[in-house]
């Protein structure tokens, strides 16, 4: 079977004006199966987010090939949607109008997109907040909007760029749990970037450790914990074992940096 996402030897170098070029990615290779939940962990600045932007189609790699269902990625497409770390909500739009964005840009009729958006707002637990503006919402609620907005076009692949990094610890635990439930229901393929080993181990089928810059896939670890997973599982010896293994691999990258 063809994997959903195939990245082969992806390299990307930024050449900012007035400054030395920075090689963010070097020959990064990885596959993601359909319906799989994969996390990328790595030291700061290792190119994890850059890779997500390549997947999204906002950045073009200098070398290598990246395919989605066997087809080359050349730009943004509706099979992929991103959840951003800083939420990226349009401050002058209500929750409803923010969630509708993807459909609006596709030219979907107003009544249809409204209905669809309301469905997702409800699913994200935001019923009753449709006409609120982002500044009236808490961080957790903002990211629910971000999630609903990404899901509105019913993409096959969900890209998540440290989506919970800006949230407090409790909200974060709650959102992780809800994300797992949504993932279970919708069967999306998820590529999840995070700094947190715990988060990666808890959510993923596989965790991929990215090396310090230039980023490549250094280690791949299968997380063979049963699903559905719950909060108690995070206290088990098995889970701690997995975390220790990821940490051991990641630590070398932190030291060399």
């Amino acid at each position: 079977m063809v994997p959903c996402i195939q990245a082969r030897d992806i390299s990307l170098t930024f050449k900012p004006k007035n400054r030395d070029p920075v090689t963010a990615l070097k020959e990064l290779t990885l596959d993601v199966a359909k319906g799989e939940f994969v996390s990328l962990v790595g030291p700061s600045g290792c190119g994890k987010s850059t890779f997500l932007n390549v997947l999204l189609g906002l950045l073009k790699p200098d070398g290598g090939e990246i395919r989605l269902n066997g087809k080359q990625i050349t730009g943004p497409g509706q099979e992929r949607a991103m959840v951003f770390q800083e939420f990226g909500l349009l401050p002058w739009r209500t929750v409803l109008a923010n969630v509708e964005l993807g459909l609006e840009l596709k030219g979907v009729q107003a009544s249809v997109r409204r209905e669809r958006a309301m469905e997702l707002i409800k699913m994200a637990g935001l019923a009753g907040f449709a006409s609120h503006y982002p500044h009236e919402l808490s961080g957790g609620m903002k990211q629910r909007v971000g999630l609903a907005r990404a899901l509105v076009t019913d993409p096959e692949v969900l890209l998540m760029d440290e989506p919970f990094a800006a949230l407090d610890a409790q909200t974060r635990d709650l959102m992780q749990l809800e994300l797992l439930q949504i993932w279970d229901r919708t069967k999306k393929t998820v590529v999840f970037v995070t700094h947190s080993i715990e988060e990666a181990a808890y959510l993923s089928d596989r965790v991929i450790v990215i090396s310090a810059r230039p980023g490549r896939a250094k280690d791949v670890m299968k997380i063979a914990l049963p699903r559905p997973r719950d909060y108690e599982m995070r206290l088990s010896a098995e889970f701690n074992d997995i975390k220790a293994r990821i940490w051991a691999s990641l630590k070398e990258e932190l030291v060399t940096k």
Binding site: L58, P76, R80, M82, F84, G88, L90, W92, R93, L105
Partner: peptide, 23 residues
């Protein structure tokens, strides 16, 4: 970030202008 959000939904230059830059 907002420009990237809108681009990620496949918006063209004109849509970026209309949805992000002008508001």
């Amino acid at each position: 970030v907002l420009v990237n959000v809108v681009r990620s939904f496949g918006a063209n230059e004109w849509q970026v202008m209309k949805v992000v830059v002008l508001p």
